[in-house]
Each structure stands twice: as structure tokens, then as C-alpha cells.
Nucleic acid binder design. Structure first.
Length: 423
RNA sequence: GUGGAUAUGGCGAAGUGGUUAACGCUCCGGAUUGUGGCUCCGGCACUCGAGGGUUCGAUCCCCUCUAUCCACCCCA
């Protein structure tokens, strides 16, 4: 084969696309229930948007972005995540002039230059929501509750909500200072990346996976201990709301999100099903981001979940989605003359909203029946020279093999009645 | 970027330094005349990821490359 798909991308094929559509429509339905509206932004943006939005020091910006120059010399980047674009669109289109809070959802492909492995791809698909303009804890709780609702509706089990608060610009510097003081004597023993983090972003040392760093940072001052009054109250209120909604959670004071824009609430939903990947969903509050991207100071909360991680989870948990069958009726035709009449019936069935298929390869009746059987249709119309002359067609019930003669003039109506549809 | 594993017909999967490379599934066709799901029969035709090398001879041995999978890192 001359050309194959780019590394880390996937062809989503029939058989799977139905599952994607099912999940997507469930998500849309839930969003409608929660008052979130869809927003669609460009697949690529000015590179600067992500540098400022996601954070210059993050791995995503430093080594994972698909950045290119267009013929006009602009630096553009395939979006690595959805929040920055949504904020940009909110500010650029002056959506702050509308109803508040502004609640949006998006769903679509994201791009990161990663080494592919289980649950990780270079083009992957995220569903996410963003709520702008609500500073209070209700918004945080609602966002988590929406994600929870989705997993509940899908029937997934054993999911854990991990939650933490990373503070705000008022209390974070205090924590940073305390943390650096705590780690200073252990600095030489930390792993290479964490030594670098010490200056740039010491908070990230807390969720380093290296056992050595974990041990060294054990007992380190947590963000929770250093929260200012406002952040502490906010966090406690979020927890109280989750309790009220019956959502179980675990406080995880080592949970720190990898994107720079988070403030206060940070959360992940964890499941053990996708190889080394555990987070099926992640999000939190980002009260400084909108201002950072040129808007008025506006609070925001949201999350994103990876579509490529929900399907393996469904599989591991043995959950079958209820996908409606693809065909209701097959029209089998023999001979030249009946062909046109068969096509007329086929067309009218489809007009009536019935899923109908026919043979387009001129196969024998036997082969057509076999073909019909593969579609698992409820009825097959059989039309040959003899039937045509008699002005009737055979209607075969495929489940009990019973047959009846139906006048050609009535066949569509009869089928519609049987299928419980309106002619 | 680092490390490990694997690469055989549409899919799954045997196999050996040397005549026609198993098998299962799928697909297509057929089994007395115009009828499915079961059964039976036949077909899908030099091909063993790519390129070199060793050898009289390699799908099985060596080298290189590529791809895929998995893990680290990071994330959804």
C-alpha cells in the first residue's frame, strides 16, 4: 500500500460510527437537559491563542502542538484542546452580552503530537463543556454533575470522581513558597523533570508519577492547607453540593491539572479500563483565563472527556449500546420487467420513512434472500414476472417465514401498517 | 524523546531451511426447476511488512528500515 493514515490517527468505520453517533447524541441530549448549547469553533487557531490560553510552560505547548505556517506567513496550530477556542469565541463574538451564565458544549477532533498508545492518539476527539460568568460553587458542581450524568446514562460502573482545589492567585503564591521551602533540602534527589519544575511550577511535583518524587513530596504542604478563606469556602460548598446530588467523590490533594489555567476546583473522573490511562474526563475552574485572553474578568468552569476513552471502557465493562437495526424491508426482484415496479415500491417505502434495501447486482432470488437475511429485515417483498402479471407481490415475514399475496397497489400501505408507521 | 513486543490471504490464527504455506471465520457461488437463517460442496489464483545479506535454496537465519501495539513521560 502506497499511503496509509498518519500515525496516531484512526479511521472510524461503519460498525463503530453507529456507536459514536449513539454516544454523541446522548451527550447532546444531556447538554440540552442541562442548558448547554453547542458551539463550533475552527479546527485551527492562531498559535498564540494556545500559548497564552494553555500556558507557555505546558508540555502541550512546548512539544505537542501541530503548528504550521500558512501561505500568508501566519503561524497557525491545530487545536490541542477546546477551552481556549471557546473562550476566544466568547470574547470575540461578545457573547458576554447575552444571557449569563453562558453555557456551551463542543465535540470534535483535537490534535497533539504524542506517541500513540492505549487511549492516546494524535487526532482524538473530545467532548467538553464550558460555563462562563458563574463564580459560585453551583457552577462547579453542575459541571461535575453533567459528566456524572453521562457515565450514569451509559451504565458505566466503578468510576471515581477525584477532586481538589488548587487555589487562586491570592493563595497560590503562599503555597508555592511553602512548597519550595519544604522541597529545597530534597531538591537534588528529585527526578530530572521535577528539578526543572521546582522553579517553574513546583505544584506539579505533587502529581509526579515517580515513586521517588512521591516519597520525597509526602507530607509536603498541600494546596488545600494553604487555601485562602474564599477558596476554602468555595471548595467546601462544592463538596456539599456534590453530596446533595448524591455524587461520590474522593478528595485528592495531589491532583493538579496539567494546563496552566486552572484555579480553585480541579477534578478528574478515573476508571481502570484503558491501559495505563486512568482519566476518562478532566476539568475544573479557570477564573483567570478569559481575562488572560483579552476579555473582561469573567469566571469559568468546564471539563473535557475523551471519546476514545469511553469506548474501551464500555467494552471492558461489557456494555452493549442499543443501536437500532439498519433495515426493515428488502425488495427482491426477478427479471427485467418487475425491476421498475420493485424500484417504485422501494422508493415509496423510503418516502414513508421505512428503511428499505434492494439488490443492485442482479443476483438470483436465493442470493437476494441471503442478502436480505444479512440485513435482518422484518419483511421481504418478492416480485417476479408471475406476480407482476397478477398485479400482486409476495410479502414474506422473515421471522416466521409466513407469506401472503398483496396487491401491488396496497403493498406499501400494508407494509407501513405492519411496521407501525404512517403511509 | 526513551524502552519492550509484534509484523503470514478481508479478519483470527498454525507452520517448516527445500515439491501444491494448514485451519477457523467472513465474503461470493452452488446443492433439480423462483425463496434466507442449519448442513454440504466449490471459489476468493505464487503470498508470508519493506529493502538488503548468508545459502544451491528462505516465510522461517542475520542486518537495516517502516508500521502497529504496549509502557515511560504527559494527558482526555
Amino acid at each position: 500500500m502506497l499511503v496509509t493514515r498518519p500515525r496516531g490517527t484512526n479511521d472510524i468505520l461503519p460498525g463503530d460510527t453507529e456507536k459514536w453517533q449513539y454516544v454523541e447524541s446522548l451527550l447532546r441530549d444531556i447538554c440540552t437537559r442541562f442548558g448547554y448549547e453547542e458551539i463550533r469553533t475552527p479546527i485551527f487557531e492562531e498559535t498564540d491563542l494556545f500559548k497564552r490560553g494553555v500556558g507557555d510552560t505546558t508540555d502541550i505547548v512546548q512539544k505537542e502542538m501541530y503548528t504550521f505556517q500558512d501561505f500568508g506567513g501566519r503561524s497557525l496550530t491545530l487545536r490541542p484542546e477546546g477551552t481556549a477556542s471557546t473562550v476566544r469565541a466568547y470574547v470575540e463574538n461578545k457573547l458576554y452580552g447575552g444571557v449569563q451564565p453562558a453555557k456551551y458544549y463542543y465535540i470534535g477532533p483535537m490534535f497533539r503530537y504524542e506517541k500513540p498508545q492505549a487511549g492516546r492518539f494524535r487526532q482524538f476527539h473530545q467532548f467538553g463543556i464550558e460555563c462562563f460568568g458563574a463564580a459560585g460553587p453551583t457552577a462547579d458542581a453542575e459541571v461535575i454533575s453533567l459528566a456524572w450524568q453521562f457515565y450514569r446514562d451509559l451504565g458505566l460502573k466503578g468510576l471515581e470522581v477525584h477532586i481538589n482545589s488548587v487555589g487562586c492567585p491570592k493563595c497560590r503564591p503562599k503555597h508555592r513558597k511553602k512548597l519550595q521551602e519544604f522541597l529545597a533540602p530534597k531538591l537534588p534527589e528529585l527526578c530530572g523533570t521535577c528539578q526543572g519544575r521546582y522553579e517553574k511550577n513546583p505544584m506539579r511535583i505533587l502529581d509526579c508519577k515517580s515513586p521517588i518524587c512521591q516519597e520525597l513530596s509526602a507530607g509536603a504542604p498541600t494546596t488545600l492547607e494553604c487555601l485562602c478563606d474564599e477558596c476554602r469556602e468555595h471548595f467546601q460548598e462544592v463538596l456539599r453540593l456534590l453530596d446533595a446530588a448524591g455524587i461520590q467523590y474522593q478528595i485528592d490533594n495531589r491532583l493538579v491539572r496539567g494546563l496552566d489555567y486552572y484555579t480553585k476546583t480541579a477534578f478528574e473522573i478515573i476508571v481502570d479500563a484503558i491501559g495505563a490511562q486512568s482519566a476518562i474526563c478532566g476539568g475544573g475552574r479557570y477564573d483567570g483565563l478569559i481575562e488572560e485572553l483579552g476579555g473582561q474578568p469573567t469566571p469559568g468552569v468546564g471539563f473535557a472527556l475523551g471519546m476514545e476513552r469511553v469506548f474501551p471502557t464500555l467494552k471492558v465493562q461489557g456494555i452493549e449500546l442499543e443501536i437500532p437495526k439498519a433495515m426493515d424491508v428488502f425488495v427482491a426482484v426477478m427479471g427485467q420487467k418487475p425491476q421498475a415496479e420493485g424500484f417504485r415500491i422501494l422508493t415509496e417505502l423510503r418516502h414513508a420513512g421505512i428503511k428499505a434495501e434492494t439488490d443492485s447486482l442482479g443476483r438470483s432470488l436465493k442470493a437476494q434472500m441471503k442478502y436480505a437475511n444479512r440485513f435482518n429485515v422484518a419483511y421481504t417483498v418478492i416480485l417476479g414476472e408471475a406476480e407482476l402479471e397478477a398485479g400482486r407481490a409476495v410479502l414474506r415475514n422473515m421471522s416466521d417465514s409466513s407469506q401472503e399475496d398483496v396487491p401491488l397497489a396496497d403493498i406499501v400501505k400494508v407494509i407501513c401498517e405492519k411496521m407501525g408507521q404512517e403511509a
